[in-house]
Amino acid sequence: MTANIIALIGASGFVGTRLIGSLGTEKCVNIDKTQSAVYGVLTTIQDIRNMRIPEALPDSATTVVLLAAEHRDDVSPVSLYYDVNVQGTKNVLDAMDKKGIKSIVFTSSVAVYGLNKDNPDEEHPADPFNHYGKSKWQAEEVLREWYQKDPENRSLSIIRPTVIFGEANRGNVYNLLRQIASGKFLMIGKGKNKKSMAYVGNVVAFIKYLIDNDRPGYRVFNYVDKPDFNMNELVSQVRGDLEQNGGLIRIPEVLGMLGGFGFDIVAKATGKKLPISSVRVKKFCATTQFSADKLDASGFQRPFTLEEGLERTLRYEFIENHDDKPVFFTE
């Protein structure tokens, strides 16, 4: 094992797989409860809910990147959010202390701010509206407490990304893009609500930037790729990239919510997870816009514009054929 290994925890998924590719296989290991479809040889199977994480951390690790999280909208029981996102973080920090590792990069979420806030920056009060956001905020508090025990030697970087999209992702943004690509997209509401987004290629580049420029201290950043589109602009951009013409069908937000509640009832009665729910309709119609001023002042240069990220994703998913490549299911 070479020196200065980066231990990625929860890197079998969408962001982690891209991050390993960016960092290089010779520089990192992956610790996850599921096998990596791409980097199996680097993966040690371990669940952060148990206390055996120290066994999986290599002695030569100098930095931990904690990506593991319980994040879907429909997790049951809700205690899983706290078992994984809070207690799991405590377990990782305990393992780091046992191994003498003093640097961690943690992926939190803009969900800590709640919905319909006015472009919150990193100093905005936390006001999470769901268990995912609440558990991520509690995990941040655990991390800050850990850092304060030895601030002169420890390094804590917290990233709060907005919704992340990109090639091979099967999350909410992909579902939206697929609906638009099908020509059967239905716009709920007036479409003037703005949506901050983050392209995965830029997110992993920023994580790498933090690792490469690591030093003792506490840092927290929203991750957003600007400029923010409103829903009308986003749909127009996607349809233009796909060379679609014609008008959009729109329905009032109240009808969309009623439809979402109907799907909730069906999901509960059948026990099936459906692509539409009241929570997803609420999120679709909400303004989710966040400040990137601190990120922009950090010295980090985004490799891609938001428009380029969308174009690359649309080309990969709906123009080219990548049926032989793995896909990653997220929210």
Rank of each mutant, 00 (worst) to 15 (best):
K102V: 10
E152K: 15
G13L: 13
K184C: 05
D83L: 14
K268E: 05
Y132L: 07
S135A: 03
A292M: 13
K99A: 05
P54T: 04
P128T: 10
V224L: 13
A95G: 12
F206S: 00
M1R: 12
H131G: 07
G114V: 11
D293T: 09
A198C: 09
G201Y: 01
P227L: 11
D47C: 12
R315S: 08
K134T: 07
Y82P: 11
V254T: 05
R144T: 06
I158S: 05
K102G: 08
K194N: 01
S79T: 15
I9P: 03
V266D: 04
G309P: 10
L176A: 08
Q148K: 11
L57E: 05
V41A: 12
V163T: 06
Y81T: 02
I251D: 05
K149L: 12
G259I: 14
H124Y: 14
P227D: 10
A37P: 04
V235P: 00
E26R: 13
D121Y: 10
E320K: 08
G309S: 10
V220R: 00
R280P: 02
R170C: 11
N169G: 09
G256P: 01
E26K: 15
Y174I: 11
V200F: 07
Y113K: 00
E308G: 04
L310H: 00
K90M: 14
N30V: 10
P120Y: 09
Y316R: 06
F106V: 00
V15S: 10
S76R: 15
G88C: 09
I158A: 06
P161Y: 01
E70H: 03
E253F: 04
P54C: 09
T63A: 04
N230A: 07
L23W: 08
Q35D: 08
R170Y: 06
V238D: 03
T63L: 02
S22H: 14
F318S: 08
W137D: 02
F229A: 09
S298I: 13
A95K: 12
R250A: 07
L248S: 05
F165M: 01
M231S: 07
F165S: 01
T162E: 09
S12C: 04
A56T: 06
T330E: 06
